[in-house]
């Protein structure tokens, strides 16, 4: 079950990344200039970036390319492996390609000729779509790796999202790894009993997942009891923000201006025009 293993690996990676960020925040390593910012600041900037990326027209490939600068600056600044981020993009690429595959066949008008090779509008629109997909996934990945799910929950709470909703997201994240590991154990036990069989046989669909569900419900009961013992009164308290609010506001404003500039001004075209 590579899917299960991959999911567990991804969560571990995110946890390690968060701990690294927190460590740097305490001055253990690196500059850590950004970790003292409120998670809401990251959330808002990411959302603004996503909005700007998808707002590019389907033929504005060069304009869209300039948005890569944000990803590079953030990835390098926070020491997040961009190669890992790229690994996450392939399922989206597959989906986006499926939707955009018809474009080169429908829009055949040539928009750019290079020698004998002609690039049609359809190809440009398909490439734009694919780039949009890659950029959006990478931006979300950088957000999670930099802020962590707990940080995102804090950000959502700051946006005055209902506490019940944030608590559910928080708990899903907390218990995801536990249940994934439990599922992995069950699958392994099944595979050992039924060697050479692909997937779970339909005769045991119900009992297999049903047992996992019953175990989950029992676990939920234990979780609730332990929450009560720790003084749960309807709200789950996660990480608390102790950094500077002024710096967070400045971070949002600076990135908003920079991103807007990248959206409006064709930076890559201008630089290209300066070249001899």
């Amino acid at each position: 079950m590579s899917k299960l293993k991959k999911a567990i690996q991804d969560i571990h990676l995110s946890d390690v990344s968060q701990k690294g960020q927190r460590g740097r925040g305490r001055g253990e390593a690196g500059s850590g200039a950004e970790i003292s910012l409120h998670p809401l600041a990251y959330l808002l900037v990411t959302f603004f970036y996503l909005l700007l990326v998808v707002s590019f027209s389907k033929y504005d490939l060069s304009g869209l390319l300039s948005m890569v600068l944000y990803l590079l600056i953030l990835g390098i600044g926070r020491e997040i492996r961009l190669r890992e981020a790229l690994r996450h993009t392939w399922p989206v690429l597959l989906l986006v390609s499926m939707v955009g595959i018809a474009n080169p066949f429908v829009e055949r008008e040539i928009c750019w000729q290079w020698g004998e090779v002609g690039i049609s509008y359809g190809i440009i629109s398909m490439l734009t779509l694919m780039l949009k997909g890659i950029f959006c996934v990478m931006a979300s990945y950088l957000l999670v790796m930099g802020t962590g799910m707990e940080g995102i929950c804090l950000g959502l709470r700051s946006l005055h999202l209902p506490k019940e909703l944030v608590a559910v997201v928080f708990l899903i994240y907390r218990y995801l790894i536990v249940l994934l590991k439990e599922a992995e154990r069950m699958v392994l036990a099944y595979k050992l009993r039924a060697p050479g069989q692909k997937g779970i046989h339909f005769k045991v669909w119900g009992s297999f997942l049903g047992l996992l569900l019953l175990r989950s419900m029992d676990r939920a009961q234990t979780v609730y009891e332990s929450m009560l013992l720790r003084g749960y009164q309807g709200e789950i308290r996660g990480r608390e923000f102790r950094g500077s609010k002024g710096r967070s506001v400045a971070y949002v404003c600076l990135w908003a201006v920079a991103l807007f500039f990248l959206r409006v001004v064709p930076v890559f075209e201008l630089v290209g025009a300066l070249l001899p």
């Binding site: 079950m1 299960l4 907390r174 996992l212 569900l213």
Partner: peptide
């Protein structure tokens, strides 16, 4: 979390 975990299991 259960739904998430169960969606990772392949049923033939």
């Amino acid at each position: 979390a259960f739904v998430f975990a169960s969606q990772m299991i392949n049923f033939t």
